[in-house]
Structure formats: structure tokens, C-alpha cells
Lab assay of single mutants.
Amino acid sequence: KFGRVHERAEGPAKILAIGTATPFHWVDQSSYPDYYFRVTNSDHLVDLKEKFRRICNRTMISKRHMFLTEEILQKNPNLCSHNEPSFDVRQDILVSEIPKLGKEAVLMAIDEWAQPKSKITHLVFCTRSGVDMPGADYQLIKLLGLSPSVQRVMMYQQGCFAGGTMLRLAKDLAENNKGARVLVVCAESSAIGFRGPSEDHPDNLIAQALFGDGAAALIIGSDPKMGLERPIFEIVTTAQTFVPNGDCHLALHLREMGLTFHCTKDVPPTIAKNVESCLIKAFEPLGISDWNSIFWILHPGGNAIVDQVESTLGLEPNKLQATRNILREYGNLSSACVLFILDEIRKKSGREGLKTSGDGLDLGVLLSFGPGLTIETVVLR
């Protein structure tokens, strides 16, 4: 008597548009150690500064975009301390800036989509910054002038794996609601975790050397309108798992001094060791076991992770080039990073006149991972 209210779509979910945005301000990685130790009044920690310089040199990052300028840091000195309470200051900045950054990426996506924004039916927003109620999803709806009846899902504090999570959720929403057009937004800022150095917490140096700011937005829907919408990728399958006891290797915690970062040297080999089982589960039903026969979007948690995944799986050097390019130009953008790589690989395919948006290949994989050593596996066509 009370059956399904919403009719299912006929076809699989497809990515119809991609937009990205970054803050205008950026830092050069080669000179960042001098800048970082100067603005945090830590130049007296000579040995720690040299250690940080070595870490920065190993990241293979060229530059990173950041909202925090020297002027902002001078006005808010607690942000430059390692342990002073600064959460309220971070909140005041990020509750406002995260939706604005997301808006810039959304406008780029809508411009490519070339359809009225009134056709957006759902919003899925993800960030690890600016936790608030009502959330960044609500603020973004107002900034864009979208209908208050847009169906919203707000996900805070997920971390680097969440780019894949957003695709998984959007696929379910698009395929189970005929005519749905799902706006996916990942907006991230390193301002939540920026803090001064400490000899007692070397993990913090890794975070300060890796993370950048950026937002990515996608429009996802099934059954694209012929002649009006141009699909870029099809989302074939999605899956999530985590490595048992992985939280002892990688975890982040909200504290009075901001978001703290805990990471062990076992993260790269542990991820590399567990990736292939995810690939087998995803691609065995499709008859694929040659990992060089697919295109790759791999989250660059750090250069060591990229190198070890490449080595463990025997990947050809060009397979992870898009990942390395984004890491070099932006650093680790947390949940937004794989979506930047997705954009990079389709643009490169277009520039080179390849037959598909995925490096000329039919199928590919998007792998994202993060806290708890959670792994998201997304098969794309």
C-alpha cells in the first residue's frame, strides 16, 4: 500500500561536471621552513628547523595554497603556538571561509554543467574544518541561492578518505532518486591544524609540511539529458573497508589547540600492503587483474605512500603521474585531493585527444585512504 515514493533511475550514476578552487595566497615549499619557523617564533630550535627542512624536501611538493597569511597569523598569535588554546579563533575563521571556498568550486562546476542551478536536488558536503550547526551545507545553500528544499547531508571530521566516500553516497542518491542531481562538495583548510613546532611531537612537522587548502565540487546524476549534459565518468562500483587496528597508525583529534595529527612510519607500507586486496575485490568480477590496464586516481597521502603503492603493485611510472602532479602543485588537500586528481586526469586526456576521459582507457580506480586506515575503492568508467 505504501510502496516506494521515489522512482529509481534507469542507469548508473555519472559525473557530469567538476570544479575546483583554492585560496589566492600560496607558499613556496622550498622556502617554507624559514617562513614557518619565523612566523611561529621558533628560529631558536635550530636542529628541529633543519629536520623540518629535510621533511619538506622529501615531500616532492612545490607549492601549497593556504588561507592563513602572515597578517592573519600576526593578529592571532595563539595559532602560532604549539599548545595555546586557539580553537575559537580557528572556528571564527573557518565557519565562514569553508563555505565560501566551496562556493567557488561549485560555481566552476555549474559553469561546466551549463544547467540551471535550480535542477540541483541534493547536496553532500564534506570538511574536517569549521564544525558548526547549522553547518557548512546550510551556509553554502544560502551563498548559492539554492532552494531550501535541496536535500542535504553534512559530513564533518572524515579525513583524507572522504573523497571516495562522497562518490559512494552520491551514487546511491542519484541511482535511487530518478532525476536527482547531486552536488558533491569537499572543502578543506590546513588552518584547522596549523600550529608551531615542538621537539616532543615530530608528527606535527609532517602535517605542517604536507597539507594545503582547496575545494572540489562535482555534479552527479543518472540518465543524463542527451544534448544537454556531457558525462565525464561513470561510477561503476564503490566499497569501503578499514585495516584492523589501523587507528594506531593514523589518527587526528580535535583539541583546544586545533586538530592534532598522529602518524607513524608504518602508514605507507601498511596501505601499500592492503591496497591489492581492495583492487581484487573490485575488479575480479570485471575480469581485470592487470593493474597497468586501468587508469589511476590515488590519494597522495605523501610521497612515500605513492612510491610504495607503485612499487608493491608493479605500476608503470606514468600510472600515478596525475597523483604526483597534484601533490606537487597543491600538497595533500585531504578529502578534496582525489577529486582534484580526477579533474587533472580528464583534462590531460582532453588535451592529448585521447579516446576516453581516463587516459584513453575504459576502466579505472579511485583509491582514497585516511584516519583509521580507512580505504575507499571506486571503480570508474
Score class of each variant (00 low, 15 high):
residue 259 L to I: 09
residue 253 H to S: 14
residue 122 H to D: 05
residue 248 C to R: 12
residue 371 P to R: 13
residue 123 L to N: 02
residue 85 P to L: 13
residue 138 Y to A: 14
residue 134 P to G: 05
residue 326 I to S: 07
residue 20 T to F: 09
residue 356 T to S: 01
residue 58 R to M: 08
residue 5 V to N: 02
residue 104 E to A: 08
residue 267 V to F: 09
residue 261 F to Q: 15
residue 75 K to V: 10
residue 85 P to M: 04
residue 261 F to L: 08
residue 228 L to E: 09
residue 362 D to Q: 03
residue 278 C to E: 14
residue 290 D to K: 06
residue 347 K to G: 02
residue 264 T to I: 05
residue 105 A to P: 02
residue 57 N to Y: 09
residue 285 P to M: 05
residue 243 V to Y: 07
residue 235 I to P: 09
residue 367 L to S: 15
residue 19 G to V: 03
residue 105 A to S: 05
residue 66 M to R: 05
residue 293 S to E: 12
residue 236 V to A: 06
residue 235 I to T: 13
residue 144 L to M: 04
residue 13 A to T: 08
residue 105 A to L: 02
residue 264 T to S: 07
residue 345 I to T: 12
residue 301 G to S: 15
residue 15 I to N: 01
residue 60 M to C: 15
residue 128 R to M: 01
residue 50 E to W: 13
residue 376 E to W: 00
residue 137 D to P: 12
residue 359 D to F: 00
residue 346 R to Q: 00
residue 290 D to T: 00
residue 140 L to S: 04
residue 73 L to A: 10
residue 98 I to G: 06
residue 20 T to Q: 11
residue 294 I to Y: 09
residue 373 L to K: 15
residue 325 N to T: 04
residue 230 R to S: 11
residue 312 T to P: 09
residue 120 I to R: 11
residue 63 K to Y: 05
residue 15 I to A: 01
residue 263 C to V: 10
residue 340 F to G: 09
residue 365 V to P: 15
residue 266 D to T: 10
residue 60 M to I: 08
residue 370 G to S: 13
residue 323 T to K: 08
residue 76 N to Q: 08
residue 324 R to M: 06
residue 124 V to L: 13
residue 290 D to M: 14
residue 54 R to K: 11
residue 324 R to P: 06
residue 322 A to K: 02
residue 96 S to W: 09
residue 298 L to A: 02
residue 298 L to G: 03
residue 259 L to Q: 14
residue 361 L to P: 07
residue 21 A to H: 00
residue 319 K to R: 12
residue 40 T to E: 03
residue 80 C to G: 10
residue 250 L to K: 15
residue 322 A to Y: 08
residue 242 F to I: 15
residue 97 E to N: 01
residue 60 M to V: 09
residue 52 F to A: 11
residue 16 L to A: 03
residue 277 S to K: 14
residue 358 G to D: 11
residue 136 A to S: 10
residue 57 N to D: 12
residue 117 K to W: 12
residue 74 Q to G: 10
residue 333 L to M: 10
residue 369 F to G: 15
residue 269 P to H: 12
residue 355 K to P: 06
residue 63 K to G: 10
residue 128 R to W: 15
residue 284 E to S: 03
residue 238 T to A: 14
residue 115 Q to P: 12
residue 338 V to D: 13
residue 35 Y to G: 04
residue 5 V to L: 05
residue 354 L to D: 15
residue 279 L to N: 12
residue 291 W to K: 02
residue 362 D to N: 06
residue 366 L to F: 07
residue 29 Q to V: 05
residue 230 R to W: 09
residue 349 S to V: 10
residue 307 D to Y: 06
residue 315 L to G: 02
residue 373 L to D: 15
residue 135 G to T: 10
residue 307 D to H: 03
residue 74 Q to V: 01
residue 259 L to F: 09
residue 246 G to W: 12
residue 127 T to W: 06
residue 264 T to W: 10
residue 103 K to W: 09
residue 241 T to G: 09
residue 61 I to N: 10
residue 295 F to D: 06
residue 21 A to V: 08
residue 92 D to L: 03
residue 372 G to E: 06
residue 366 L to I: 12
residue 259 L to R: 15
residue 6 H to G: 10
residue 273 K to D: 06
residue 354 L to Q: 12
residue 380 L to R: 14
residue 265 K to N: 08
residue 378 V to M: 12
residue 14 K to R: 05
residue 11 G to E: 07
residue 333 L to C: 14
residue 88 D to W: 09
residue 267 V to T: 14
residue 85 P to S: 11
residue 137 D to C: 12
residue 128 R to A: 15
residue 4 R to P: 15
residue 17 A to I: 08
residue 314 G to W: 03
residue 276 E to Q: 08
residue 262 H to M: 03
residue 316 E to N: 00
residue 66 M to Y: 01
residue 131 V to P: 14
residue 364 G to P: 15
residue 82 H to W: 15
residue 334 S to V: 03
residue 310 E to M: 11
residue 245 N to A: 04
residue 358 G to T: 04
residue 314 G to K: 02
residue 109 A to V: 04
residue 336 A to Q: 04
residue 142 K to V: 13
residue 235 I to Q: 02
residue 380 L to H: 14
residue 97 E to D: 02
residue 374 T to M: 13
residue 129 S to A: 13
residue 354 L to P: 08
residue 254 L to F: 10
residue 267 V to S: 09
residue 87 F to D: 14
residue 10 E to P: 12
residue 53 R to T: 12
residue 57 N to C: 05
residue 119 K to S: 11
residue 72 I to S: 09
residue 353 G to T: 00
residue 309 V to K: 14
residue 81 S to P: 10
residue 2 F to W: 11
residue 351 R to C: 03
residue 28 D to N: 07
residue 319 K to M: 07
residue 326 I to V: 10
residue 247 D to G: 08
residue 265 K to H: 10
residue 233 F to R: 02
residue 294 I to W: 04
residue 31 S to G: 11
residue 107 L to V: 11
residue 268 P to I: 13
residue 304 A to W: 03
residue 50 E to L: 03
residue 253 H to R: 03
residue 245 N to K: 00
residue 320 L to E: 03
residue 360 G to L: 02
residue 361 L to Y: 02
residue 355 K to S: 08
residue 122 H to R: 06
residue 20 T to P: 09
residue 234 E to D: 09
residue 11 G to F: 06
residue 297 I to P: 11
residue 52 F to D: 01
residue 228 L to M: 15
residue 252 L to T: 14
residue 379 V to P: 15
residue 310 E to Y: 00
residue 89 V to D: 14
residue 100 K to P: 03
residue 55 I to A: 13
residue 329 E to W: 01
residue 68 L to F: 04
residue 234 E to G: 08
residue 257 M to H: 06
residue 101 L to D: 02
residue 318 N to T: 14
residue 35 Y to D: 01
residue 296 W to A: 07
residue 88 D to K: 08
residue 291 W to D: 00
residue 302 G to W: 13
residue 339 L to W: 12
residue 246 G to S: 14
residue 134 P to L: 07
residue 241 T to V: 01
residue 334 S to T: 08
residue 297 I to S: 06
residue 326 I to W: 05
residue 267 V to K: 10
residue 29 Q to W: 09
residue 66 M to K: 12
residue 288 I to V: 01
residue 308 Q to A: 13
residue 280 I to H: 02
residue 66 M to W: 02
residue 52 F to M: 03
residue 352 E to C: 15
residue 136 A to D: 11
residue 116 P to H: 06
residue 229 E to V: 09
residue 91 Q to N: 00
residue 99 P to T: 11
residue 57 N to I: 14
residue 11 G to H: 07
residue 242 F to T: 15
residue 345 I to S: 05
residue 141 I to L: 06
residue 120 I to L: 09
residue 236 V to Q: 11
residue 27 V to K: 02
residue 356 T to E: 01
residue 58 R to P: 01
residue 235 I to S: 01
residue 146 L to A: 03
residue 355 K to M: 06
residue 281 K to T: 10
residue 45 L to C: 15
residue 340 F to Q: 15
residue 351 R to I: 09
residue 23 P to F: 00
residue 40 T to P: 03
residue 230 R to M: 10
residue 137 D to A: 13
residue 33 P to C: 03
residue 87 F to Q: 00
residue 86 S to G: 12
residue 129 S to F: 06
residue 252 L to S: 14
residue 348 K to A: 00
residue 140 L to P: 01
residue 80 C to F: 07
residue 74 Q to L: 11
residue 355 K to A: 08
residue 244 P to L: 04
residue 134 P to R: 12
residue 84 E to K: 06
residue 337 C to H: 15
residue 297 I to N: 07
residue 90 R to V: 13
residue 271 I to R: 07
residue 91 Q to P: 07
residue 374 T to L: 13
residue 327 L to Y: 15
residue 313 L to Y: 03
residue 27 V to D: 10
residue 360 G to F: 00
residue 115 Q to E: 04
residue 134 P to Y: 12
residue 368 S to G: 14
residue 366 L to M: 13
residue 28 D to R: 09
residue 371 P to G: 09
residue 117 K to A: 10
residue 323 T to L: 01
residue 18 I to N: 04
residue 18 I to L: 03
residue 105 A to G: 06
residue 247 D to Q: 04
residue 307 D to Q: 00
residue 45 L to N: 11
residue 144 L to R: 02
residue 123 L to T: 07
residue 311 S to R: 09
residue 346 R to I: 12
residue 42 S to P: 02
residue 128 R to D: 11
residue 263 C to I: 06
residue 125 F to I: 06
residue 291 W to C: 06
residue 142 K to W: 03
residue 323 T to Q: 01
